[in-house]
């Protein structure tokens, strides 16, 4: 009587499974050991999403793209530019309140002679992204004139991005205003208001994260 060979049938499947498992584990281990993926998001440790649009620098509207100002090869200890990004609305009360504080902070961090001690090859740039929280609502006016007037009123010297179409707000998923981010020269977020511990402000984070002292 001819008997079906069950042992060989099972053996063929497990031999195949063994080969495939070894192949899969080898490939996966190699990938895990040689790469360190960082995902794009707005949490601390994430890569900042793209941020682009027209920026008012006090004289003209110019195109700006955060990615063009990122040095992906940067590592801690290198020189570079840190970005303090504020998502704000020129009509929002909390943003108006914080505008004066930013005026005080800008001389500490930005310009040719910041009062905060920093290595010579480290710079800090502020960027305000003006979004539209309540477009069409009476009393909430939007437009480039609103942005330029706001900047002049608070004597801000840094750039203001026009995001009244909310493209960047949607890309970043901004929950409210003002929302602050500190972005390292390699594009990694070091501080984000939604992630921040209670009481830890952007200015505290900048003091902690941005190096002090002479040339690095």
């Amino acid at each position: 009587m001819l008997r079906r060979n069950i042992c060989n049938e099972a053996g063929a499947r497990s031999d195949g499974l063994m080969f495939v498992s070894v192949l899969f584990i080898t490939a996966f281990t190699y990938i895990a050991l040689t790469t360190n993926p960082v995902y794009t998001g707005i949490g601390v440790g994430d890569r900042a999403p793209d941020l682009s649009g027209q920026v008012w620098d006090g004289n003209s509207w110019t195109d700006f793209d955060l990615q063009d100002n990122i040095d992906s090869m940067w590592s801690e200890g290198d020189g570079g530019t840190y970005y303090m990004i504020e998502f704000m609305d020129t009509n929002c009360g909390a943003c108006i309140k914080s505008a004066s504080e930013i005026t005080n902070q800008q001389s500490k961090w930005t310009g040719d002679n910041p009062t905060r001690s920093m290595p010579e090859n480290v710079t800090v740039e502020f960027l305000a992204v003006s979004i539209s929280l309540r477009g069409g609502t009476e009393g909430w006016d939007y437009g480039q004139t609103e942005i330029t007037d706001f900047r002049t009123e608070y004597e801000h010297t840094f750039g203001y991005m026009d995001d009244h179409d909310n493209d960047n707000r949607d890309e970043w998923g901004i929950p409210g205003t003002p929302t602050y981010f500190l972005v390292a020269p390699n594009g990694i977020i070091l501080y984000a208001t939604p992630d921040a511990e209670q009481g830890l402000s952007i200015w505290d984070a900048m003091d902690y994260e941005i190096p002090t002292g002479g040339v690095m």
Binding site: N8, G11, A12, D15, G16, A27
Partner: peptide, 23 residues
């Protein structure tokens, strides 16, 4: 892709090793 080809490889290797099997 890795998962799909791993599955395909397993199916094909099993058949190659035991072409007369019931499965």
């Amino acid at each position: 892709g890795m998962m799909a080809f791993a599955l395909f490889l397993w199916l094909a290797i099993s058949i190659a090793k035991e072409p007369s099997a019931t499965w």
